[in-house]
């Protein structure tokens, strides 16, 4: 086993938290939008495209999380 030190371990945990928590937040956002979008589509089929786009809007959060995680991960040698 290679000893990578506590500091690097902390970085790894931080990267994991950044990814996981932001994905969770994105999921909570998509939950509400997704159900509303399905409802709208049921009433009017033309809403499908708009609903789909609105549903992926909160995914930005997860992407920010991933970017932060990658930046942290690059600090580990």
């Amino acid at each position: 086993m290679v000893d990578i030190g506590v500091g690097y371990g902390m970085i790894a945990i931080a990267a994991g938290l950044a990814m996981g928590l932001s994905a969770l937040a994105a999921a909570i956002g998509e939950m509400a939008i997704g159900s509303a979008a399905v409802g709208a589509t049921a009433e009017d089929r033309d809403m499908f495209g708009k609903g789909l786009i609105l549903t992926v809007l909160p995914e930005t959060l997860a992407i920010f999380g991933l970017v932060v995680a990658v930046l942290l991960w690059l600090k580990i040698p």
Partner: peptide, 10 residues
């Protein structure tokens, strides 16, 4: 602008 990092992330 940061949103475009999805080009890499996805």
């Amino acid at each position: 602008i940061l949103s475009y990092t999805r080009l890499f992330a996805i």
